[in-house]
């Protein structure tokens, strides 16, 4: 049989390592959406004394390269310091996998983003963010670009669903241009809060709907 994937990719695809969730993770992230065809979730447990990743788990909805990259980054990141783990690149993952098809970059790069976001999530939740950029409307907007509009599969910002963003003394208010009883309203609210609340200077975040 002729597959476009290396033996290592197929091996990780068949037997992905470190699959699942961690109960009470120290950091977690979900990247991607069903629209782009791929999603990856990454959970980490951090050893605060050594500042290393003591445990890591991933889940994947996606193609073979997405699954294999998710699997390999858990192996690459485990035991590394947060700084080392953050520096793992797509190239590192691809090399460890014996190469990935070029057309699959966008599916596999998600796992790298997932790892970095999980580390960032840990740091934000534990007050460890080094470069303390004040949260502005733009910062919030950038975060919301990672929340997908399930109606179209594009993010909330691109699909003009963000009606208003307000930032005042650590209180963030996001207004979504959808009725509150919309089928995706509660899912969107949850996802938005997950993205905005961990920001270091955000005290409270609320999501409102237009009707």
């Amino acid at each position: 049989m002729k597959f476009p994937y290396s033996e290592t990719v197929l091996e990780h695809f068949r037997h992905p390592r470190n699959v699942g969730k961690i109960e009470n993770p120290d950091g977690k992230a979900m990247e991607g959406s069903p629209a782009c065809g791929d999603m990856v979730s990454v959970h980490i447990k951090v050893d605060p004394a050594a500042n290393t990743i003591s445990d890591i788990k991933f889940e994947s909805y996606g193609c073979a390269s997405n699954i294999a990259t998710g699997s390999i980054i858990t192996e690459l990141a485990k035991g590394k310091t947060l700084d080392e783990a953050r520096k793992i690149t797509w190239k590192d993952a691809s090399e460890a996998l014996g190469g990935l098809p070029k057309i699959k970059v966008h599916c596999s790069v998600l796992a790298i983003g997932g790892l970095r976001s999980a580390i960032r999530n840990y740091e934000e939740r534990h007050g460890l963010v080094k470069e303390k950029v004040p949260t502005t409307k733009e910062v919030v907007r950038k975060r919301l670009k990672k929340v997908m509009n399930p109606l179209t599969g594009l993010d909330l910002v691109r699909t003009n669903l963000i009606k208003e963003i307000e930032m005042k003394d650590g209180d963030v208010r996001v207004v979504i241009d959808l009725p509150a009883d919309h089928q995706f309203a509660s899912a969107l609210k949850e996802e938005i809060l997950e993205k905005v609340e961990p920001l270091w200077d955000v005290k409270k975040a609320v999501v409102e709907f237009t009707e």
């Binding site: 065809g37 791929d38 909805y61 996606g62 193609c63 073979a64 997405n66």
Partner: peptide, 9 residues
Amino acid sequence: FIEGESITL
């Protein structure tokens, strides 16, 4: 809940 290329592979 699962993706077609993974299923076909």
